[in-house]
């Protein structure tokens, strides 16, 4: 330290000087020697030095807040937080501030897109036991069986006509192609089910998409079946002719049959319950899927019982009577629960 430096110092200068501050707050041996010598050599500066030092030391006489009584408690809280975060940190994906903003923005956007997609589609569905006729914008007609649903684009007429079906529906598709040798993609009508796609020009057919299985019966016209899943797409697309009945599903082998009387597929339209050589199990599934019943079959052997011949009834009670008469089994109904037993 330079003795000469301090000769002209004012109180303010001293307050700005780091070495002087150290001397007042926490003097080293060297500091004490230096400042004692300085005051001895320059007695006229003593008052200023004293004033500066007094100002600092008086200011420093402040009440302290050490909060010692909480020292241990706060530490215990810290270590329990650390332990808690240790155990969960492994599987917590932490996001930074910017990432958080980006993520919430993205979610917001996603919600908007999803809402748009939802709002841009028309949803039509039916309750158990109800049949509903829907006129599509291109004046094709869909008759929906009970517990079924179709979804199609609001701007249905522009571009390919596409309908997504769950449940059962009878389609009467309007023919808009005038030149069968030159089919434009815009003239197609496609029905999507969970298991297959049906490409149509103009025709009437019945589609039943229930329990991961789709059955298509063609009544008139011509349709082509394709499969959306990769494995099945190796199998060739199939073109159906009237009377063809195709069944395809996730865990079911594709079956193609000929129907003697394809019109029977449409009997449900008039609230008819129609079956041909059905098993009790098949009847039970229809009761559950279309009419919303809960069917309990007491033992497995009963469900394999077959009723020979055709059933064509419009009332469920008639159906129950036929079942109980043919096999001498009892059909008990309690609200929406049906129990079939010996």
């Amino acid at each position: 330290m330079d003795l000469k430096k301090y000769i002209g110092f004012t109180i303010e200068d001293y307050l700005h000087d780091d070495d002087f501050l150290r001397y007042v707050i926490n003097p080293s041996e060297e500091d004490l020697v230096f400042w004692t010598r300085f005051v001895n050599n320059n007695p006229s500066r003593a008052v200023i030095i004293q004033s500066a030092s007094k100002l600092i030391s008086t200011y420093r006489k402040q009440e302290t807040f050490y909060n010692e009584k909480s020292q241990q408690a706060v530490f215990e809280r810290i270590s329990s937080t650390i332990n808690a975060s240790k155990s969960k940190k492994l599987n917590v994906f932490r996001l930074g501030y910017v990432q958080k903003i980006a993520a919430s923005f993205f979610l917001f956007l996603l919600a908007g897109v999803m809402f748009y997609l939802y709002a841009s589609k028309v949803h039509q569905d039916t309750e158990f036991g109800h049949v509903k006729t829907i006129l599509l914008p291109d004046s094709s007609v869909v008759i929906l069986n009970g517990n079924s649903k179709i979804v199609y684009a609001r701007n249905f007429r522009d571009g390919i006509r596409e309908v997504w079906l769950t449940g059962e529906g009878l389609f009467k598709v309007k023919h808009i192609n005038n030149d069968p040798g030159n089919i434009k993609p815009m003239e197609k009508f496609i029905v999507h089910s969970s298991d297959l796609n049906i490409e149509v020009l103009g025709t009437t057919f019945n589609v039943k998409n229930r329990r991961n299985k789709t059955s298509v019966g063609l009544i008139s016209g011509k349709i082509q079946i394709s499969y959306p899943d990769l494995v099945q797409s190796k199998t060739k697309n199939i073109v159906l002719t009237p009377g063809d009945y195709l069944q395809h599903g996730k865990n079911v082998k594709t079956v193609l049959q000929r129907l003697a009387d394809p019109e029977k597929l449409t009997l449900w339209v008039n609230h008819h319950l129609a079956f041909k050589n059905p098993t009790i199990k098949e009847i039970a599934l229809v009761l559950e899927d279309e009419l919303g019943y809960q069917v309990r079959i007491e033992n497995d052997s009963i469900s394999t019982y077959r009723i020979e011949g055709e059933i064509n009834v419009s009332d469920v009670n008639d159906l129950f009577r036929i079942i109980s008469d043919t096999h001498h089994i009892r059909v008990l109904q309690e609200d929406k629960t049906i129990t079939i037993k010996h």
């Binding site: 807040f65 050490y66 909480s70």
Partner: peptide, 27 residues
């Protein structure tokens, strides 16, 4: 701990707030 509390106390008399800040700092 003590000097941090002392410094924190210059900004607020809310002891809980100071302790929370010290907690967060050390965590």
């Amino acid at each position: 701990f003590k000097i941090l509390n002392n410094y924190g106390h210059k900004f607020t008399n809310n002891t809980e707030l100071i302790e929370d800040a010290v907690h967060d700092l050390f965590v």
